[in-house]
Amino acid sequence: MRTAAECGLVACPACGTITRLSVERFEVPPKCQLCFARLHSRKPMSIQKSWAWLVAGVLAYIPANVYPIMYTTVFGNSEPNTIVGGFFVLWEMKSYPIAIVVFVASVVVPVLKFVAVSYLLISIQRGFKHSRYDRTRLFRLTEFIGRWSMIDVFVVAILAALVQIGSVAQIAPGLGATAFGLTVIFTMLSALALDSRLIWDGDQDLASVNRPGHISGHAKRGNNLYANDGTPLA
């Protein structure tokens, strides 16, 4: 078994079609001949772009916590709410489930994402050889969970639209909400820029995958495995 790159092949990022890259056949930059997406064996400048977006995300996370994400006005008394403050209020109200959801979405997920993407980037740059599979899983988790942090921004927007009850109660969004939204977007862009194939480049353990007679592609549904010729395996 080999990687596409080792065979001089590249898979289209949009449609998956495999193309053989050769200097004479392609204009620069090369495009997929079927769907015309830009082809690249590894995302260009992946590490640099990912670091850049990540730093932007961390920087935006500072004002996101310093400035209020919203202002609550009840009977004329206006009060700023920060992200962490909102959690404490909910906790004191004994709305534990919601407090935990808010805390996870607005503090745990962004911070874990900073740490996880940094670790992945450093591991690629240092050429770590261990736990490639676990790092790939970490990458998947980061990619999947990152966008859910937007829930905080949406909650603020919905509260601001709904709680406009004359003199009784009003909620207005604050600068912190914009900063937090930018944090989420920047870290999503950071994860999108990171090419997970870099985690596996230089993997020398392919021999173990390429045992004679071993399946070279398998399909899973429950516990059913299928060999190359379609016969079910144990």
């Binding site: 078994m1 080999r2 990687t3 596409a4 790159a5 065979c7 092949l9 590249v10 898979a11 990022p13 998956g16 079609t17 495999i18 193309t19 053989r20 064996s41 490639r132 599979y133 790939t136 990458f139 998947r140 997970s196 194939r197 985690i199 596996w200 480049d201 993997d203 392919l206 995958v209 399946i215 070279s216 592609g217 398998h218 399909a219 899973k220 549904r221 059913n224 299928y226 060999a227 190359n228 010729d229 379609g230």
Partner: peptide
């Protein structure tokens, strides 16, 4: 080439195999 598929996460090449409806083929490395 049309019978090959490269894992979009680790770039390993696989030969496409027929799988039953509703099934998903997965990369054997990652």
């Amino acid at each position: 080439l049309s019978n090959l598929v490269a894992c979009h996460e680790c770039d390993l090449l696989h030969e496409k195999v027929a799988i039953e409806i509703g099934a998903e083929a997965r990369c054997m490395r990652c």
